[in-house]
Write a protein that binds this DNA or RNA. Structure first.
Lengths: 259, 259
DNA sequence: CGCATGATTGAAGTATATCAATAGTGGTGG
DNA sequence: CCACCACTATTGATATACTTCAATCATGCG
């Protein structure tokens, strides 16, 4: 039976999606929860249908209600500056949480836009807070996740204030590579889900600069670029260009790393 | 009795220092704790003696044990980049917490250096975590504080990636002004506890640029500068130069602000 | 009081932005 | 299915905000 998975089958399996069978649990909030705890967390989570590219998860100013975990796809978050231009504050991949910066406010301080067809888990914050009061491991995991976010943003500050354009782009590619690797994808071949414009915006560079540096890196045999397809030819060399301290590819066990 | 407060008196009052009589409680973790809860928090906190300018609270790589709350004085945090130069990640004033970025690691990812004679409250993280499990309001306050830190760092990213030198310096001065105001000091006259070099480092600018902009602002009657003494002549005009969206001085009740 | 360190100001250099023109890409409808 | 159009990316030429280098001046600490 069930020899040919059909449409109904596929729908059923979508509805059967739970934290305890989510491949991302180890990257997300369920990390180190017991099975029963995981089920309780699962109970408060709303799984979204696929969201279309270009649509918004929420807009800056919308009332804050929920944290979102990316299940599949990519999301960018951004604010709009005084003169109307956008500043991208982050790209979010499966297992990552969006909305942590809104916890002490009544409205989202940023907008979240879908970059490619994406599904998310919506976690109502009031309920999450309740559960965090009852489940020590969930509380710790939430706080750890926030601590990591603070740290990563400080690294981003360093990138923006001290690094050259080449270092920024190299660092960006390495970080992407590392994130793909952690999710079980190739660390050396991947597809950019954002435009050159968005990369430049995020890194504090003009589009043209990003484009030139991609070309330069290609000429230097560091990477192969073909539109949005990136192949990293030498993680080591790219790392040398990035000006980063540690060698991310050696950093297999991030929990024990001292950063 | 006790007509002339003497040395012993002063020492006694130092030892009598507790969360429930700390003027900063409303800016710090004790915020919205009940009196009993506050006393329990107070029970796990170690009050430091005065720390000397130039000394370190901890060094990058030291084992992570505690969060610190500044009680009086100023502290800067910084990382050291590959080529040995430092990147300042923040300045911390009374009531602010240091070390939140280390929570999910085993070692501090930054160093913390005293800028002027400072006292701190040391909060052992294990004990804080225990208490957070028992006291919902403490848990919420810790998480809120982290959420705010994440948000503020995103604003800093925006500053570093989109703002001009003048906008950066103006924003910096306004943020300082606001922080002094919240602590009951003058919003328009204050003393910089950091050097021009440190300001430049933090803002991603050369010292010379900071100095030139201070002079320019002075010429434009925005501020008066005399060494480390700053007088803001027009918060409104400075705000206009800063490129910030909101008018911070109108933002009296930050808890209800939606940012 | 003196000397090291920090701050200011000017002159010259540079990395990156901006402007401009062309080439490629992907989505849409005929 | 291909042709079209808008959008995105690339590449070159020029402009500029900020850095770097250099010299002088101020400050504060022992």
């Amino acid at each position: 039976m069930a020899e040919k998975p059909n449409q109904v089958e596929k729908l059923r399996s979508l509805n059967d999606f739970h934290c305890n069978n989510c491949g991302l649990a180890s990257l997300c909030l369920p990390l180190s929860l017991s099975l029963t705890d995981m089920e309780r967390l699962d109970g408060i989570i709303e799984k979204s249908p696929p969201l279309k590219k270009g649509s918004h998860l929420f807009h800056q100013g919308d009332p804050f209600t929920s944290i979102f975990a990316v299940r599949a796809g990519t999301i960018k978050t951004y604010t709009v500056t005084k003169d109307g231009e956008e500043q991208i504050t982050g790209f979010y991949f499966p297992g990552e949480l969006i909305g942590l910066n809104a916890i002490d406010t009544e409205a989202y301080p940023i907008s979240a836009k879908i970059l490619e067809t994406t599904t998310v888990c919506e976690i109502p914050y009031e309920k999450l807070d309740d559960l965090a009061g009852q489940m020590p491991e969930l509380r710790r995991q939430l706080i750890r996740t926030m601590g990591r976010e603070i740290r990563e943003e400080q690294q981003m500050m360093l990138l923006l204030s001290k690094k050259t354009a080449e270092e920024r782009v190299a660092t960006f590619l390495l970080k992407l590579s590392e994130r793909y690797r952690k999710r079980g994808y190739s660390a050396s071949i991947f597809r950019l889900s954002m435009s050159r414009n968005e990369i430049g915006n995020y890194l504090g560079l003009a589009v043209e600069t990003v484009s030139r540096i991609f070309s330069r890196f290609q000429k230097q045999q560091l990477i192969n670029v073909e539109g949005k397809e990136i192949e990293v030819l030498s993680l080591e060399d790219l790392h040398a260009v990035s000006g980063e301290l540690r060698m991310p590819s050696l950093d297999q066990n991030s929990a024990r790393a001292t950063s």
